[in-house]
Simulated assay, not measured.
Amino acid sequence: MTHSDSQQSHAGARVAVVPEDREGQRLDNFLLGLLKGAPRSLVYKLVRSGQVRVNGGRAKADRKLESGDKVRIPPVRVEPEGERPAPPRGFMDALEAAIVHEDARLLVLNKPSGVASHGGSGISFGAIETLRALRPGQGLELVHRLDRDTSGVLVVSKKRSTLTEMQALMRESTSGAGGMRKRYLALLIGRMPDGTMSVDAPLHVGLRQGGERHVQVNPSGKSALSHFKVLERRGGHSYCEVRIETGRTHQIRAHAQHIGHTVAGDDKYGDPEVNRRLRDQAGLKRLFLHAATLEFALDGGKTPYSLTAPLAPELLDVLDRLK
């Protein structure tokens, strides 16, 4: 987006015309790309209050934009890049060490649990802000997100063309078309049935008091399909491989709760008493959910990628203690 793509309007607002390479991008991500440094919470507030308009009308943050759409952006005071403090050196070093793949198009992180994919909501530095500090001038953009408590494969693009192609693959996956194949590892509470259990249950995202997201199975929700396969029994619980064919918010955690076998260490959807016992007996101090593998192909299917992130040492320790 260059200055020529935007025009000033009255009262200091400007109108940005969506270019062809942003076709299909969500409104919130489009705004975050334009308003570099603006907190995500501020962007959502501007959209909710109707200060942001698309083709003259109000729009939701998840609206998919089309080439040529005119987006009205109110005046926003954003700190210049140089005025913002850098992430702590130790945090930058830890994320540098967590990079598991890098090439001309992609940078792939084995994101640690407890690290947000992006800043906002009281979080000064997420993974993307820290990677940008490590790779200044490379134009890094998140391809997708992981829950803060989930570890594993997090993909960042270095090129706009790559981001556009991967977002198209993500949209295919969300609709169940299989543009990306996602494999997770999880410890589920209790004894799951042998073999593979497929859960086809729509999920609805609601907000609790204070704005916290909570997801539950609801017929009015969006379609979601997960496959749980038991790999091992550990301490009366089930160590599973989980493959998801859609990419809904908290999908695995909400589906696990729905079948009565919550993810171990889940303080949102899980059993507090069982989580406490696992903490005391096996040292589990986090959510036992790890994005292990992400497979896809770029260049129209000609260039396959199979990205993997090893299970975190603290989760391996838990499995050893549960023998």
Rank of each mutant, 00 (worst) to 15 (best):
L187H: 08
K159P: 03
H255T: 00
S198A: 12
G236V: 01
G190M: 01
V78G: 14
G82Y: 06
D103K: 07
A292W: 06
F91S: 12
E96Q: 14
Q257P: 03
V230F: 11
G283M: 05
L131D: 05
F30N: 10
R105V: 13
S198F: 10
G176W: 08
D267C: 10
D320E: 14
A127V: 13
H10P: 00
D267L: 15
G114Q: 07
S41C: 06
L188G: 07
H3T: 15
K182D: 01
A133C: 02
D266L: 01
S306G: 02
D266T: 06
R279H: 07
K182P: 00
L298N: 08
I244D: 01
L315M: 06
A116G: 03
R213S: 04
L319I: 02
Y44G: 01
P304K: 05
R276S: 08
L35G: 04
A282R: 05
G68D: 13
R234T: 00
D147H: 10
R286V: 07
G211D: 04
R135D: 10
H250D: 08
Q7A: 14
K64C: 08
K64I: 09
R191V: 15
A264R: 11
I259K: 03
R321Q: 10
L31W: 04
L316N: 11
A254L: 03
G56T: 03
P219D: 01
K323D: 09
G190S: 04
